[in-house]
Design a protein around this nucleic acid. Sequence first.
DNA 1: ATAGGGTTAG
Length: 614
Amino acid sequence: MSSLRCIAKHPTISLVDSSTSLRELKQIHTQLLANGLLNDPLLLGQFVAAIALNNPSNLDYSNQVLDRCENPNVFTLNSIIRAHSKSSTPQRSFHFYNKIQSAAHLSPDNYTFTFLVRTCAQLLARETGPSVHADLMKHGFEHDPHVQSGLIYMYAELGCLDSCHRVFAGVSKPDLVCQTAMVSACAKSGDVVFARELFDKMPQRDPIAWNAMISGYAQCGQSREALNLFYLMQLEGVKVNEASMVSVLSACTHLGALDQGKWAHAYVERNKLRMTVTLGTALIDMYAKCGNMNKAMEVFWGLKERNVYTWSSAMNGLAMNGAGEKCLEIFSLMKQDGVQPNEVTFVSVLRACSVVGLVEEGHEHFESMRKVYGLEPQLEHYGCIVDLYGRAGRLYEALNFIDNMPMKPHAGAWGALLNACRIYRNTELGELASRKLVELEAKNHGAYVLLSNIYADSKNWDSVSNVRRIMKSKGVKKLPGCSVIEVDGEVHEFFVGDKSHLRYGEIEAMLGEISRRLKLSGYVANTNPVLFDIEEEEKEDALCKHSEKVAIAFGLITLREGVPIRIVKNLRVCWDCHDVTKMISKIFNREIIVRDRNRFHHFKDGECSCKGYW
DNA sequence: ATAGGGTTAG
């Protein structure tokens, strides 16, 4: 609402806000024209900016207003460039930039370039961005602090860290804002170590600087570092705000650290931070991805405002947790509420259909993307449809769909088919899919593992060892599995075969007990080559080595009876672990919730919520 | 008279 500050000076223009209808705008326009007020470039600029900024859907109209003006000045045009740079159609900024350039009596100023650089960042304009940079240098604005920090932001968005460094090196005395922009740029581009060095060297740091560094850690996956820095921020008595908490929550989400996430939620309430849409959405995402979907929905319904992120987060959580019908219900409510779904929303819609097995409905939603919402389906959506057919056992329709994709099928599409082939034990199609997958991603260990499982299922041991040989010769390595469990607010990480935990002795004893009790109840350890889940030297002892089993054992030792064991795993759960976990949930009478890289498994009484499909 | 850095979903 900052635009209202300057506008309030004129009584009529000050009336314009987001609720002003187009008809009312036209009346005001006529009135202003009749009084000759729009000949005043100041008022015109304010009017145009008010229309556009307070309601982006009015941009068209503000353009018309401007077009009817005979000689807009730079202020007026800057206002509209600014409005466009923040809108969903930033490219239209250039129309007005060109106007400035082509008018003999006009010349762009430092404001123009500040906004235009923003536009380029929004557009990820790889070519135009640098050319705007060249333009502003021609006009001699490269030493303007606003322009400089804007350029650093832009190059970070464009993924040109080198250019960020060049701009930054050219700043004689970088101020707080510029330094923060650079910290953020480096962290976003993956050089978080350098970002931290810069951050540590800053002579003074305000909350935004801290937030930049914390979110830098959170965004590059260094969640524990993000949390550590947040604690440091509190120790130093820096004022924590909503944005800080959003990053903290995002770190908790990635760790699957429900206790810490709950603590962060309580912190927000205790400190009376504003429950903004962004913060609310981060909370929903945290609860959903830490396996507490009820709490996620409680937060969801408690919010005053929900945007497309909010709805999509809730829907994604429901789909991930296997609540497909509920996800589709929320989707209907979202539409009733007048919030436009986007591509991300549709990923959840299609996954929900897939989970429920609603093949036709899923296909209709897919079609509606283009027809009803003007959204072009992306690779992910095609992958979802393959999965939709595949899970329903309609493997050849899945294949047919892949064959008719308008673009080259990606690894995700073949991967979805391969997974379906594993579930439905179709060796022939599985071979085809994995061959394609390997063509696309020669080092995709998942393709080999799934293919090997398919061969093993059909007792084709020669082919199993063949797959293993190929993997070896190509140097395909499996990403080390890692499972995380939180106990008393402390996050414990277990890697495959990792015995470094302080209490490993107890864990080993518990693994032994699990194994004994499993055998007693008739479980036969799967030591045949099915378990060639290509983890090399682990076969003989596979039962005890997969990271989730170690984490579950640790949970059984440390968590009180009746407390669910929550595990976050970086890979998909393997077949055997899935079986074993089902049995543990029954034998030890313990609810076990595993978040793998795709979805949730809620194990209870010997059953899993995924019903064997994942 | 219009500026610059931090925050959410696949």
